[in-house]
């Protein structure tokens, strides 16, 4: 699937030689990544590898220090004048990323608004959509994530999984061309992870372009068109799930996957070595 769409012209996201520095620490060291329409890219890597920072740079929640990020052909966050980078206004940033949806690890729902208001408020405030129309669209979005029955609940009355689904509905309501997911299931109790992943799977099936930072290797293996392994601020491995999970012998990647399996296999018989089990 990725090969076909890759031929389809301009990528939705194009990251070119991006560096990100926090003080004297280089968190990202020259990232190149492009994401085509309808492609699902899963970004994996150890904690502190820079994978979340990359996603936040693509959303311009962090200013990247060097390089260029293009969203549907438009440079994000900066303007180039005679080769000099200049930070553009917040309004201009908002304009360029208007088609980017973001789902946060901690949901970041607004606790004083009901589920419905969480989805409808941005439509009114950012897009100027009249109240009734915004509510109607919000209801449709909640329905899509299976939460129409909880529309009038406040976030504190919802489970973590439900809150995250509201977070997804809120992003979807803006009709984004690409959805960025920053560890969407990491803050959830294990038994609530499934419902969120199911919503994401449905989205992928509908052809939504997605970039997902995740620790859910099963999801990555099943749904991703491309898996990117980030380690110490660089893309160490990237390719199809088969290439990354099965065929690659990068020692850091093997170690990372080994750790993942050991954490998640809770019972095994005999002396099977889990690293040899690519079936995910």
């Amino acid at each position: 699937m990725s090969e076909q769409t890759a031929a389809g012209g301009r990528p939705i996201i194009d990251v070119k030689g991006v560096w990100k520095r926090f003080g004297t620490v280089d968190v990202l060291k020259g990232i190149d990544l492009s994401i085509q329409k309808s492609e699902v890219t899963c970004i994996i890597g150890p904690s502190g590898s820079g994978k979340s920072t990359l996603l936040r740079c693509i959303a311009f929640l962090e200013e990247y220090s060097e390089g260029e990020i293009y969203i549907e052909g438009e440079l994000l966050g900066f303007s180039l004048e005679n080769g000099k980078r200049r930070r553009v206004s917040d309004a201009e940033v908002a304009r360029v990323r208007r088609n980017v949806g973001f789902v946060f690890q901690q949901f970041n729902l607004w606790p004083h608004m009901t589920a419905l208001e969480n989805v409808a408020a941005p439509l009114r405030l950012a897009r100027g959509i009249p109240r009734e129309d915004a509510a109607k669209r919000a209801r449709a979005m909640l329905d899509k994530v299976g939460l129409s029955a909880r529309a009038d609940a406040y976030p504190s009355q919802l489970s973590g999984g439900q809150q995250q689904r509201v977070g997804i509905a809120r992003a979807l309501a803006m009709e984004p061309h690409i959805m960025l997911f920053d560890e969407p299931t990491s803050a959830l109790d294990p038994e609530l992870v499934g419902e969120v992943l199911q919503v994401m799977r449905d989205l992928a099936r509908e052809g939504m372009t997605m970039a997902v930072v995740t620790h859910e290797m099963g999801f990555a293996a099943q749904v991703a068109d491309k898996v990117v392994f980030i380690d110490r601020g660089v893309i160490a491995v990237s390719g199809s799930p088969e290439q990354v999970f099965r065929d690659n012998d990068n020692p850091r990647l093997r170690q990372f996957l080994q750790n993942y399996f050991e954490r998640n296999v809770f019972w095994q018989s005999g002396d099977e070595t889990p690293a040899d089990a690519p079936a995910l």
């Binding site: 959303a59 929640l61 917040d90 309004a91 908002a94 990323r97 208007r98 980017v100 949806g101 973001f102 946060f104 901690q106 970041n108 729902l109 607004w110 408020a121 941005p122 405030l125 950012a126 897009r127 977070g167 809120r170 992003a171 803006m174």
Partner: peptide, 20 residues
């Protein structure tokens, strides 16, 4: 994080103060 979420949705600074 809540402010970030609002910014991501394109809500203006003043509207964030007032509504969030």
């Amino acid at each position: 994080g809540q402010i970030e979420a609002a910014r991501m949705m394109g809500i203006s600074r003043l509207a964030i103060i007032r509504h969030v």
